[in-house]
């Protein structure tokens, strides 16, 4: 896939796992807890931060990444979070070929990060996060942007204009942490990496929707990471 990020590596990889965080446009470390979580992530995993271009006007990516002992960071030219995370994964996997697990962090929230080593010991083959089938309300929200159609009519339409509007979203997740073994990530990249229609359709959705919709349901353990 064409990469839309510029990657800056600050130090060599040290762990078998890598945490990827796509920072929101208005990101800020808002509490001591956030700061501690970032510290813990960099202690237990190789921390990799993705800065949307607009955020670089408020935060210096290099200073911030160095402060939290990150392995590296990327500046994203795309606002599509899922695309930027896939780009980051592709780079990290291809250039380092070292990480067995990727922990994608949606939002900093309390989580027993010190348990990660124990989880890695389980040699997981499947991704770990909880997901749910997109329900009627979500579908209505996604497919009913144009009022003259009901969501169901719109879903069934074959017109090109409607072809690429969130049609691939069938699952979602409310989790903040997604543990994805490298083989699962590679499969996703292989399957969807060159499918721009698919990836573009998630432009207005978080990585949660992308990952939940992209992983086959049987590949999910359907467990929250902190419940293992």
């Amino acid at each position: 896939m064409d990469t839309k990020i510029r990657v800056y590596i600050l130090q060599k990889e040290r762990h078998i796992s890598c945490s990827i965080i796509f920072l929101a446009d208005d990101f800020r470390v808002s509490s001591e807890e956030d700061s501690k979580l970032l510290d813990s992530l960099s202690k237990e995993t190789d921390l990799f931060l993705i800065f949307p271009k607009v955020l670089t006007k408020k935060i210096s990516p290099k200073k911030f990444s160095t402060l939290y002992d990150a392995m590296g960071y990327a500046i994203s030219e795309t606002e599509n979070e899922s695309e930027a995370i896939l780009n980051a994964f592709e780079y990290l996997d291809e250039v380092f070929k070292k990480h067995l697990y990727y922990l994608v962090v949606n939002q900093l929230s309390p989580f027993p990060i010190e348990n990660l080593q124990r989880i890695f010991g389980l040699q997981l083959q499947t991704a770990v996060f909880s997901s749910y089938r997109t329900d009627y309300k979500d579908l209505e929200e996604i497919y009913s942007k144009e009022k003259e159609y009901t969501w169901w009519e719109k879903l069934l339409r074959k017109d090109e204009d409607f072809e690429n509007e969130g049609l691939f979203c069938y699952s979602n997740s409310d989790d903040d942490y997604f543990l994805i073994p490298v083989n699962v990530f590679r499969k996703i990249l292989e399957e969807y990496g060159n499918n721009n229609y698919y990836i573009d359709s998630f432009e207005n959705y978080s990585f949660n929707t992308f990952i939940a919709s992209s992983i086959q349901p049987e590949n999910l353990t359907n467990s929250k990471l902190d419940e293992i």
Binding site: T3, I5, R6, V7, Y8, I9, A74, I75, V95
Partner: peptide, 8 residues
């Protein structure tokens, strides 16, 4: 380089 990695 697109970014920076001093190994290269």
């Amino acid at each position: 380089q697109r970014g920076e990695y001093n190994k290269y």
